[in-house]
Every structure is written in C-alpha cells, then in structure tokens.
Design a protein around this nucleic acid. Structure first.
Length: 281
DNA sequence: AGTGTCGCCTGAATGC
DNA sequence: TGCATTCAGGCGACAC
C-alpha cells in the first residue's frame, strides 16, 4: 500500500518525534508479521537512542546508538502514529508494537493485514541485508535515468507497467504511481518494456520523478488505511488522473465519453491498471 | 534468468 | 439482515 511518497511522509514525521529521543518502553503484541519480530527487539530497543532516520525504497531505517538499525516496512496496511500517553485509546486490535519515548510520546505500529516488516539489523550490515541487497536505484536520484532504463530493458518482455513496479529496476513505485506516471508520460501500460524508444524513456523517467515529488508535497495518497504519523490523510488522491477512475474522463479530455468509455481498467500481473486508451500509446 | 501465479492476512464493499 | 465473494497501495516463494 504505502509507496514512496507515503513512506517519505511518515518518515519526516518520525524524525520530528523520534530523533535524539530515547526509547524507554517496548511492547510487542503480535510478533508475527511478514517476518517474525526478532526476540531481541525489545531488549535492544529499550534505553536506545535514535540517532538517524532515513528511507530506502519503501523501507524506513532508524539507526540506534547501540550499532543496531530498526527496519520498518508498512506493507499494505501498516500505520505508524503517535499517541500522547494519556490520550483516549482507539481500538487496539491490530496494534502490534508500541514504543514509549522518554518524553512520554507513544509510537504505535498498526497493521491489520500484517504484510509489514519490523526487524532489527546491525547497522553495518543493514545495506547488505536481504531487504536492501537487490534493490534498484532511487527514482529521485540521478542514477535513475533514461540511459539506465534503456540498458536495463534491453531484453525485458514484461509490460512497462510491471517493469516500473519491479523494485529491482526502480524502487518506491507501486500500483498507484505506476499508473499515474504512465499517464503523464502518455505511454500505454501494456507496451513491452524493450520496445520503448529513448525519447519515451526520457518522458517516463521525468514523469515518475514529477508524480512522486508532487505526491510527497501532498503528503501521499489516502485511499483507505494510509495516515501520516499524526493520523492525518494524504491529499494526492485529489490529483489522480487515472487511478481508481474507471469510466471517467481524464484531465483536459476532449473525447466523447459515450464513444470511448473514458478511463479503462485492466489487470496486469494480478493488479489493477488504469489508463486512457486515447492519450496513452 | 526471466516471467507468471499464488499466498500471506484482514476488513470493507458489493452481490445475492 | 446475513452470508459469500471480491478486492485492496507489497512482496517473496514457487513452478515453468
């Protein structure tokens, strides 16, 4: 669920409450997420101070002052949020982890579908861990360029929509932003990756960067579960051109909706794709 | 090696 | 109203 813009938004909130704070309390309610929360998590977190926080792909990394790094992935339905110590509690059915900081702030990890990850890795080993070892470049870095995609796509027969969601090719782009970026780049999501011309790859790279930056500015997209650390919704869903808009017109549309049927929904790799057959070729 | 399918989980929306 | 079915933003394990 949460893609790069949502994770980036959560991270910036986490930095504000977490950095240079010491964890004084750890409570694990459900150890079984995508992986099991490790047994040494609670003792290692207790009395540790968070000295740095960063994002890689859709993962957050919280570096502690004891040479360990807390790795967090929100999966499909994960929410991290702060609660004041005495605030009225909402239902806690899926609150899997609860951290208490030295100023009384509580941070709760809630994840109904339990596809998320909470793990603890030695800081010096984290970038070589299974989570990070095989990831492609960050989409907002210079390494993610048309030339890079041209090389990477040389023999790729998968549809372009699936290729840009492949975290080995480029990280952070999930189902929503893949559809939105392809619309902005005017590229049909079904196109075989290796058939894209360099000019199209340039459009695509620039569209992905633009869409992600815009979404970060809007605090991400909230369809259902996603919230930032203060419990607020993202706003980028107001700016969707095609995602979740089957049968509607796309922005600046001049076609006859009755004739064309508007935005189309198809399934690729088991996931919904939305696109405009008139504008995307 | 590259590609396609399945399953992990729960909850909300939809259909009968 | 109640029950069954479908779908959801991710990702890794498989089989071919």
């Amino acid at each position: 669920m949460p893609e790069l813009p949502e994770v980036e938004t959560v991270l910036s909130g986490l930095k504000q409450v977490f950095l240079n704070r010491t964890i004084v309390g750890v409570k694990i309610n459900t150890p079984k997420l995508r992986n099991k929360i490790p047994l040494n998590l609670a003792p290692k977190l207790r009395n540790a101070k968070v000295i740095a926080a960063s994002r890689r792909a859709k993962y957050m990394k919280l570096d502690l002052d004891n040479d360990h790094t807390l790795v967090v992935h929100l999966g499909m339905s994960g929410v991290l949020r702060t609660e004041l110590a005495n605030a009225k509690k909402t239902k806690q059915t899926h609150d899997h982890l609860r951290l208490t900081l030295d100023n009384g702030t509580e941070i709760v990890y809630r994840d109904p579908r339990r596809f998320g990850v909470i793990d603890l890795v030695k800081t010096e080993e984290v970038d070589n861990s299974a989570y990070f070892r095989n990831l492609g470049p960050e989409p907002l870095s210079r390494k993610f360029s048309a030339a890079y995609l041209q090389k990477t796509f040389a023999n790729k027969t998968v549809p372009i929509k699936q290729a840009i969601m492949d975290q080995k090719i480029v990280v952070g782009v999930g189902n929503i932003y893949a559809s939105e970026s392809l619309f902005l780049a005017k590229i049909d999501p079904r196109r075989v990756s290796k058939t894209l011309k360099i000019s199209e790859l340039e459009q695509l790279v620039s569209a992905i960067k633009k869409v992600l930056k815009h979404a970060i500015k809007e605090g991400g997209s909230t369809l259902r579960d996603y919230r930032n650390i203060g419990g607020e919704r993202g706003l980028f869903q107001m700016h969707f051109s095609v995602y979740d808009r089957e049968g509607k017109v796309c922005p600046h549309c001049t076609c006859n909706l009755k004739k064309t049927g508007g935005i189309k929904r198809i399934v690729q790799g088991g996931r919904s794709t939305f696109y405009c057959p008139q504008k995307q070729r």
